[in-house]
């Protein structure tokens, strides 16, 4: 055994925050990857929805604008789902593990750890778009110019931020079981009412009016605008921003409350 002795000399500094964030992102990614069913469920559902609900309707699939919009709204759903599950169910699960308490005794601040978690969620959000992009490219008339594609990549972050915050609010305020149920109960109604499965053009007037106030609808309209050029309602950006602020407040409240309860 090569005996390195106990640390001697002046006390070592903390590792740089970025290094710690990257470390946590990497290992959380690997952890998620090792449970393939969680990954597949997240990644396949939007792709399957595209395959079963859009591809058979050739009127939509063969029309470049309609097809691109259909892929775009399912992409919003994919990102929303990745963010809500990674953070809503994932955080609640981690909080229940004693390992979480151990990690808090390591010499690292909570900020970089949280950043690592958000990075991991973002990575899965991007990955969940891969099946959609492939199916959209090869089986529909959906097209994107390079500028539109770049816009779409940026939009992923804009959509991911509010739903990451909502996921954190759920994950930090509930038990594992409750968080899983609440995540699902949030995801599907928001998806449906937000026009992510059926285009909002098919909504009756009253549903369309409610829909326009939802974060999922605002995100969808903005994504469709970026990818197809169809003008989004003027309210879309302010609505998404307002929800982002509200979810941020909720997330901060949940994290603080959890700190107070478990680590006072």
């Amino acid at each position: 055994m090569t005996a390195t002795t106990v640390a001697a000399g002046p006390r070592a500094a903390l590792r740089p925050p970025l290094a710690v964030a990257w470390l946590h992102a990497r290992y959380q990614f690997v952890e998620t990857l090792r449970v393939p069913i969680a990954v597949l469920g997240n990644m396949l559902f939007p792709g399957l929805a595209l395959l079963f609900f859009v591809i058979p309707q050739r009127a939509v699939a063969d029309d470049p604008v309609a097809a691109t919009a259909a892929v775009g709204q399912l992409a919003v759903f994919a990102v929303m789902s990745a963010c809500l599950f990674t953070h809503g169910a994932g955080v609640a699960e981690d909080r229940a593990l004693p390992f979480d308490g151990y990690l808090r005794t390591l010499p690292a601040r909570p900020g970089p750890r949280l950043a690592g978690r958000v990075l991991n969620g973002l990575a899965w959000a991007y990955l969940s778009l891969v099946p959609l992009a492939l199916i959209g490219t090869f089986l529909t008339a959906a097209t994107l110019s390079w500028a539109q594609a770049l816009g779409a990549v940026v939009m992923v972050v804009a959509v991911a931020v509010p739903f990451t915050l909502l996921g954190l609010a759920i994950g930090y305020s509930m038990s594992t079981k409750a968080a899983l149920a609440v995540t699902q109960c949030t995801l599907f109604p928001l998806g449906f009412a937000g026009g992510l499965f059926l285009p909002p053009q098919m909504f009756p007037g009253w549903l369309d009016a409610i829909s326009r106030l939802l974060p999922s609808r605002a995100a969808r309209d903005l994504v469709v605008q970026v990818t197809t050029g169809a003008e989004a309602p003027g309210l879309a950006a302010p609505v998404l921003l307002a929800w982002t602020v509200a979810f941020a407040a909720l997330a901060v409240w949940a994290v603080r409350r959890d700190e107070g309860r478990r680590f006072h």
């Binding site: 640390a7 006390r11 070592a12 500094a13 903390l14 290992y27 952890e31 593990l97 004693p98 390992f99 979480d100 308490g101 151990y102 005794t105 390591l106 010499p107």
Partner: peptide, 14 residues
């Protein structure tokens, strides 16, 4: 805590 070492409960390892 850079000089501190603690141990997790063995039930909680990832």
């Amino acid at each position: 805590r850079t000089w501190l070492g603690t141990t997790p409960q063995e039930t909680g390892l990832p």
